[in-house]
């Protein structure tokens, strides 16, 4: 077929597109993934029974804030990397790095003040062996739905786009998990929450070139 014919073919049909297709697809994907993630958390783990008291502890809000900033970074990166010619910009990397660094400083401060025997329990808490795994598990439906939304876009840097989808999913899952998680120390969050977010991010980077190709 000649190129002129292809052009005529493409221009002959319905060419208009609704304005909000991409944002509504991403919103739908996020809502569906989030609901599935919350359902998993409620079904498998349950909300911590002392949530009202926990909400008085500043550390609870450190967790929420940490996850919240990473969610913003992941969302902005997903949105930008999904469209050809849009640059990633400085916001996503800095909004990822700053909360991580602040949390590490907080963790360092708390570790230096503690006695050697306390340090271990600050780092490991009661649930270190399951925390990262559970965050990754809660991130699974979100990663699937975010990657689906991204397949409707046109990412050109597939590994990075997959990682962005993973960061978004992992940090939303960390937020959901914090409603269950009993741990309240900065060193624990700095280590295990970060690992929990890193697992879906790495998985997303691996899946990107395999699933986002167009």
């Amino acid at each position: 077929m000649k190129t002129d014919e292809l052009v005529s073919l493409l221009a002959a049909g319905e060419v208009a597109v609704p304005r909000r297709t991409l944002p509504s697809r991403l919103a739908l994907a996020t809502a569906a993934g989030l609901l599935a993630s919350i359902a998993l958390m409620l079904g498998l783990l349950g909300i911590r029974s002392d949530l009202p008291q926990a909400a008085m502890d500043p550390m609870f809000w450190v967790k929420i804030g940490f996850a919240g900033l990473l969610i913003v970074a992941g969302l902005v990166a997903t949105w930008r990397l999904g469209r050809p010619g849009v640059k990633l910009g400085r916001l996503p990397p800095s909004t990822t790095a700053i909360p991580v660094l602040l949390l590490w400083l907080l963790a360092l401060a708390s570790l230096t003040q503690a006695t050697p025997s306390q340090r271990v329990s600050l780092l490991l808490g009661e649930t270190w062996s399951s925390c990262a795994f559970l965050i990754a598990l809660l991130a699974a439906p979100l990663l699937a739905s975010t990657l689906w939304a991204m397949r409707g876009m046109a990412p050109t840097r597939l590994r990075l786009a997959g990682a962005a989808a993973g960061l978004f999913s992992g940090s939303l899952a960390a937020l959901v998990y914090s409603l269950h998680c009993p741990e309240m120390t900065a060193p624990f969050i700095a280590l295990w929450y970060l690992l929990g977010v890193a697992i879906p991010t790495t998985l997303g980077a691996w899946l990107g070139p395999r699933l986002l190709h167009w």
Binding site: T3, L6, L10, V17, P18, R83, A154, W214
Partner: peptide
């Protein structure tokens, strides 16, 4: 051209 057409909403 096909890709541009398919992905024109981006």
């Amino acid at each position: 051209l096909l890709a541009i057409h398919d992905k024109r909403q981006t």
